[in-house]
Design a protein around this nucleic acid. Structure first.
Lengths: 210, 210
DNA sequence: AAAGTAATGTCATAAGATTCACAAATGCCC
DNA sequence: GGGCATTTGTGAATCTTATGACATTACTTT
């Protein structure tokens, strides 16, 4: 795989292409063009080809791409050839919803532990998991080779959770709390901010009134 | 407000600055520099100033920004001076979690109706709302001046819901289904994809092995 | 088998976003 | 009240990302 720097936007789109392709495959479609993909996910055909070109030549000129092959390639590129175990911290409404979120499972993610420090939540069952106290996190991480943690707690508790995750040896954190986390350089963080996109919509609607 | 085109990334950051500032305000901090904001949210100081500069001059040279004033400005820019009523379609785990999501309320969003077409969910209560059948959506939209809808249904049902929302006169859609929606140009759509960011993490972790 | 059509891969170009660097303005200290 | 510290606002420069255009390759049809 090339060493040159890949735009994060490319990875984002690759993830979207990958899922779109799986849907095509399920419909029995075997060949697809960059134009088809582009139309299906809302980007330009040149963009699709460019994104794929970072990683190799996967298509056939005059023909297009083999759907199954391209799925395999995108999955490989995204690091999803092998399944991933995750831990979730936060057993509130959002945390619970994410634990049972079908799309995660479909993409090869398995949540192997749910944690909270709220005594009213510990012991509760979510899907087939029992909510455990935070002290158990390091053990579960070790036992299941977990490298990625998800944070779904209120903003004010998030940094403390991040610290615990770092100490437990996690290498990456997906953060749903609307706050920027402080972690060492060797830990990757990505934030999913649920209200930002909503505010982009209100910004745009407000503009219309002008 | 300027007519020139604002990068969407700027709006995204503005939303983040705005919430960061509210947190400072709650702590009693009255003045803040672009450097403080930058550090707090993880961008460069120049970026903060540049983002604000699209909309006016809000600071005082040699001093910084007045926190309360800047909150007012960012809220105004984002179109959040007045509260927004929303409708939610999808009363599954994710939809339910979003209906009770505190951050939405804090930013001035009120969900005034939750809809589903699953008979086992209709009639269920989420927070203080009763889940209604989809037929009731147009009425609730009209009665509450709703302009924005949220979709939290499985991918295969999402387009149908989008069509219903468009027909009901909604102007913007926040889509949590991992699929690209087809809507007329006058309807704004933004997708929140819960697994894309996770796959950026796996991509990066997979790179490390190289 | 030649001509026509389709679609990739990629180089060149254009567009867009971020960073730099500094003049201008403010407050503070001696 | 003059000089020093700060910190904004911004035009220019840089870096990054997306688009355009086309040569190349493959398939299809006659």
């Amino acid at each position: 795989m090339k060493a040159l720097k890949i735009p994060e936007a490319t990875i984002t789109r690759l993830s979207i292409y990958s899922r779109f392709l799986k849907r095509l495959d399920k419909k029995g479609i075997t060949t697809v063009s960059s134009g088809d993909i582009a139309e299906g996910v809302g980007v330009s055909p040149a963009q699709v080809r460019k994104d794929l070109a970072y990683f190799g030549e996967f298509g056939t000129r005059g023909v297009g791409y083999n759907v199954k092959d391209l799925i395999r390639y995108t999955v490989k590129i995204l690091g999803l050839s092998e399944p991933w175990n995750l831990v979730m911290v936060g057993a509130g409404n959002l945390g619970s919803a994410l634990v049972t979120y079908r799309e995660f499972k479909d993409r090869g993610f398995t949540i192997v532990g749910v944690f909270d420090n709220d005594l009213t939540k510990i012991g509760k069952r979510i899907a087939d998991l029992e909510v455990l106290p935070l002290e158990d996190l390091p053990r579960v991480v070790k036992e299941n080779n977990v490298r990625i943690g998800i944070i779904a707690v209120p903003a004010k508790a998030a940094q403390e959770i991040a610290d615990i995750m770092v100490k437990a040896g996690l290498e990456a954190i997906l953060n749903f709390a609307p706050i920027s986390l402080n972690v060492p350089d060797h830990v990757e963080v990505r934030n999913v901010d649920l209200s930002v996109k909503l505010e982009i919509l209100t910004f745009n609607l407000a503009l219309r009134e002008k």
